[in-house]
Write a protein that binds this DNA or RNA. Structure first.
Length: 426
RNA sequence: GGAGAGGUGGCAGAGCGGUUGAUUGCACCGGUCUUGAAAACCGGCGUGGUAGCAGUACCACCGAGGGUUCGAAUCCCUCCCUCUCCGCCA
């Protein structure tokens, strides 16, 4: 959520900032909200003051043993007027809030200008794509030859966009998760977390999935719960309604969870293979930090995600999202894109964002600023470190051999009991 | 699932219809004393909002939401959560 003061005091500047991401702010509506809110609130408070005054006098009179029936009659109509004013104010404030909840975050000044994906700016590249003396297969073919990746049976068990992994690929996926968790917790200093995979509506609102993106979620209406689309939701909500001391920051968490997404808006896109599934594994990095250091932390966190790709020796590039391609809650985002030989292109495998105080305001996640002594909103960040399903694909495709076997990256061999290759025969 | 108890400030814990935003203790911050520290003593110490240049004034908040009342932390209703015992269960 945007700063309500700013929205009130200077809606023009908010409108200008949002226009860079193609969002038009209804200025007339903002001004109308402000005028009505101010008037109703003052009226309500005046009536409350009056009522409190009368009630105190009645209390005092009663204590003196005086007759209070006349005084009571005098206040009789006040209650109704107050109730009317309070209700009108409630209605208006709810209207203002639901309006504000639909507004996306303001892009940071360093975010490149642009309308969509094609305007994103490549920041760097790492590694070189292997040249194959044969035509590289995609992960679907490779998985089928290993008899370890089955989309058809998943459809009979659940629906399309699910997969069943077995044997060496199920184990390889587990090895990737272990490797990522170990790296981030031991080498990078994140605290490993295990959290609920179902969360309530308040948590979804806190990180920005609700109210605007309800259709992207899997919902359990009978329980009032939602399946998490990313560990970002439960982990960031650890800071909800909390005030951290300066010494407690930064809070840094790493968490592996399955992620559930309805992919409502992507019919027909990436229908082949494991690129886009309703359920996938992800290791997520989350930080809660003091505002003045959040952009330095974004660079750091992105570097932590990059180190996984580097250790797996997977070629990738780092891209700064342009304003028009930014997610709803993000002020700045780097995407990491891994090289997929079968598609001869880079595909997103991690998304690292600084949300500034956008999520913190919804969450009431704060820290006590030593300079002011006051609780102030902190900044939240997160990034995939990495999307495990897509990492599995990338390893399979980049490490494949002509006979359909797959080399095991050196850093994963210890997690596979020293195994160096996965082959169809075995 | 059955039976009971309870949710109050950073923590502990009073208050159970009136001047209580809330006794007290601990923690925390400032001061006196001390060579320094501790102890003792004095003072301060929640959050959000409205008006104002400001000092300040006012409003709201005692799990959440409704209700009763001139007036609710205190009474009533609904919901959420926690604890204890029994049952069931990975």
């Amino acid at each position: 959520m945007l700063d309500p003061y700013l929205l009130r005091a200077d809606p023009e500047s908010v409108a200008h900032s949002l226009s860079s991401r193609g969002v038009v702010l209804d200025l007339a509506r903002c001004r109308d909200f402000e005028i009505r809110r101010r008037q109703l609130q003052m009226e309500t408070q005046e009536l409350q003051t009056l009522r409190n005054l009368h009630s105190k006098n009645i209390g005092a009179a009663k204590a003196r043993g005086e007759d209070i029936t006349a005084a009571k009659a005098e206040v009789a109509t006040l209650g109704d007027r107050l109730k009317t004013a309070e209700q009108a104010l409630d209605v208006l404030q709810a209207e203002i809030e639901s309006f504000a909840l639909m507004l996306p975050n303001v892009p940071h000044s360093s975010v490149p200008y642009g309308r969509d994906e094609s305007d994103n700016v490549e920041v760097s590249r790492w590694g070189t794509a292997r040249t194959f003396p044969f035509i590289p297969r995609d992960h679907v073919d490779l998985g089928a030859r290993l008899k370890a990746m089955d989309f058809e049976v998943a459809t009979t068990i659940a629906a399309s966009r699910f997969v069943v992994l077995s044997g060496p690929l199920a184990r390889l996926q587990r090895a990737l998760i272990q490797f990522m968790l170990d790296t981030h917790s031991v080498a990078h200093g994140y605290r490993e977390m295990y959290v609920p995979f179902l969360v309530n509506a308040a948590s979804m609102r806190g990180t920005g999935q609700l109210p605007k993106f309800k259709e992207d979620l899997f919902e359990i209406p009978t329980q009032g719960l939602y399946l998490i689309p990313t560990a970002e939701v439960p982990v960031t909500n650890l800071a909800r309604d909390r005030i951290f001391s300066a010494e407690e920051l930064p809070q840094r968490f790493v968490c592996h969870t399955p992620c559930f997404r309805s992919e409502a808006g992507s019919y027909g896109r990436d229908t082949r293979g494991m690129i886009r599934q309703h359920q996938f594994e992800k290791v997520e990095l989350v930080q809660m930090v003091a505002p003045q250091e959040s952009y330095a932390r974004l660079e750091e966190l992105t570097g932590h995600a990059e180190s996984i790709l580097q250790q797996l020796e997977l070629p990738y590039r780092k891209v700064a999202l342009c304003a028009g391609d930014l997610g709803f809650s993000a002020a700045k985002t780097y995407d990491l894109e891994v090289w997929l030989p079968s598609q001869e292109t880079y595909r997103e495998i991690s998304s690292c964002s600084n949300f500034e105080d956008f999520q913190a305001r919804r969450l009431m996640a704060r820290w006590r600023n030593p300079e002011t002594g006051k609780p102030e909103l902190l900044h939240t960040l997160n990034g995939s470190g990495l999307a495990v399903g897509r990492t599995l694909i990338a390893v399979m495709e980049n490490y494949q051999e002509a006979d359909g076997s797959i080399g095991v990256p050196a850093v994963l061999q210890a997690y596979l009991g020293g195994q160096t290759t996965i082959s169809p025969a075995g």
